[in-house]
């Protein structure tokens, strides 16, 4: 394999890993504060992606042509929209079921995801088919030592890393992060410390959802396409990544996200080279099989709860 193609795969793998990590972080935050699985998470992201498309159409309608301004408006509107959607799911679906069996929460969020998915498919014009996502980042490429580095990929990678680092700082350094960790470790004692439990839960759901939606927008910009069911696979992969890393652990989710992308890359590139009969389309089969084996080997995740900091 030439260095050029290898670098392409490497960048692709990093990009996917980051997007998965950004989705997985949401699952792990939600589980951290409320011990619940929010299965509508993937579809909240999808709705955020379509919201960004609507915002793009709106900028065109009012005659804004600068692609940076368009992008900024898309990012801001999708962040606000998904944060609100995530908080609404928490307020009206998850919190009222706090004393019900966890399976009910899982089921009700699963159904909520279906509602979102079908609603977008039916309401969005021609929603059943893939929608083109505007490619707004510069397409220049830099030639570095025989490699083509595309500026748009680099921008997405850097922004993604900054977002993950920012989330880390928010959780470990800020007062909101202190409250999120307190609620995650002992919700009742957090209340006795004067922390407004419900407010922190809503903020956490908003934060996790917005983070995932930004991952969704990055995915749209990278692949210049979005479908109504993108949240399905993205949700399952993000969930798998969060479990793989150790649900409730922020760094586990990030690790799990990148690990899943590496597995996909191995399935797509390395295995077909070694086994001539292995088509690269089997990359998800391969990646999920390895995840199943890994979870069988370490049922509590790679970074086990006991030795690590939950959220």
């Amino acid at each position: 394999m030439s260095l050029d193609i290898f670098s392409q795969y490497l960048i692709n793998c990093l990009m996917l890993g980051m997007i998965y990590a950004m989705v997985a972080v949401g699952f792990t935050l939600f589980f951290g504060v409320l011990d619940v699985i929010q299965f509508a998470h993937g579809d909240v992201l999808m709705a955020g992606g379509f919201g960004a498309l609507v915002a793009y159409a709106a900028t065109q309608a009012v005659g804004i042509a600068n692609s940076w301004v368009q992008l900024l408006l898309m990012v801001v509107s999708t962040t606000v929209m998904t944060a609100a959607l995530g908080a609404l799911v928490a307020r009206f679906l998850v919190l009222p079921l706090r004393n019900a069996p966890p399976l009910n929460t899982l089921l009700i969020t699963l159904m909520m995801g279906m509602v979102l998915r079908e609603a977008v498919r039916l309401v969005y014009p021609n929603g059943s088919n893939p929608q083109p996502f505007p490619s707004l980042l510069p397409h220049d490429a830099w030639r570095v030592g025989g490699l083509d580095l595309r500026v748009d990929s680099l921008i997405l990678l850097v922004v993604g890393l900054l977002l993950i680092a920012g989330l880390h700082l928010l959780i470990t350094r800020s007062k909101l992060g202190l409250a999120i960790r307190a609620v995650a470790q002992d919700g009742e004692t957090a209340r006795v410390m004067g922390i407004n439990f419900n407010r922190i839960v809503l903020l956490t759901f908003g934060l996790g959802s917005a983070m995932g939606a930004l991952g969704g927008v990055m995915r749209g910009l990278y692949y210049t396409e979005i479908t109504f069911d993108v949240g399905l696979l993205l949700g399952v992969i993000g969930f798998a990544a969060a479990i793989l890393g150790g649900l409730g652990n922020l760094y586990g989710a990030i690790l799990g996200g990148f690990l899943f992308a590496v597995l996909q890359a191995i399935g797509a590139v390395a295995l077909p080279v070694l086994l001539p009969d292995f088509p690269s389309a089997y990359k998800d089969v391969f990646a999920f099989t390895v995840v199943i084996v890994l979870i069988g080997w370490k049922p509590t995740g790679l970074i086990a709860e006991k030795t690590s900091e939950r959220v």
Partner: peptide
């Protein structure tokens, strides 16, 4: 039971 936050 003190209920300190163990991972802080």
């Amino acid at each position: 039971g003190r209920r300190i936050f163990p991972k802080m």
